[in-house]
Amino acid sequence: MILGRKNIVLTAFVLICLLPLLMGFVYSLGYSLGVFGLMNEGFTLDHWLRLFASKDAWSSLIYTFLLTLVSITLVIVFAGLLSRAFVSKPERSFTQKLLLLPLLFAPVAAGFAWYYVLSPAGILSRISHALGLTEDITSFPRMVNDDWSIGILLVHVFLVLPIFTFLFTAQAKSMNLLEMNKLATSLGSSRLQCFTKLWLPALVKRFKLLIVLYAVFFMGTYEVPLILGQSSPRVLTVFISEKLTMFSLDDIPLGHCMAVFYSACIFIVLSFFLYRQKSTAS
């Protein structure tokens, strides 16, 4: 009974969670430092210096960060609005059931479907042509592979909005936010103020961890920008996978540098939010 079944199971769990990550991390780190790899010739910091000297890498980092920020903000705001509308409705209205639909979309399928809805030769464009709103293909506004990442944002919202809406609605009910809203209104708050000062903050505070987790998901978004994104700037995951399979073999270590950087960031952010909460709670 030195080990015991319990300890074996727990050890197995910890190993499954951490060992592969550690192994991957060590390999990529080694590669980025010139230790592993067919084309590498021993320890060097060159690759890291090259990464941080490249505009490409920085624009990818900044772009991914902004995309994450805007995506999660849009999701929160829309979910907030929808929860405000749904909170007084019966549990499972048709609209609410319909909102479950995106949960059955793989990111690949969602990206694909929206591409053909939004692209200049897509369904909306054809409808607007049929209605005489646009004359030809070029007069339709560009929403895929576009400057503002409209397509990507839309798909992000599409995929995540349902979950947030359901959670927000359930939480608003159990926190009796509607009553508080009435109270605030009677104290002279406008509808907008009620929403921005009371409704959203209450929900955001309650789901802080979940919001962070989804932000981390958005940081790692891959298929959607692969289908709907521009060639530059690219999100981190696309940057990494492109560098790793680039024409230039010299660029492979850069991909590993970025992979190390990305996973270290995720690790730090997660550890901060997961374990800080614990220590303040106890």
Binding site: L22, M23, V26, Y27, G30, F36
Partner: peptide, 8 residues
Amino acid sequence: ILLVLLSA
């Protein structure tokens, strides 16, 4: 870590 390095 040693183990991982060895196998790598």
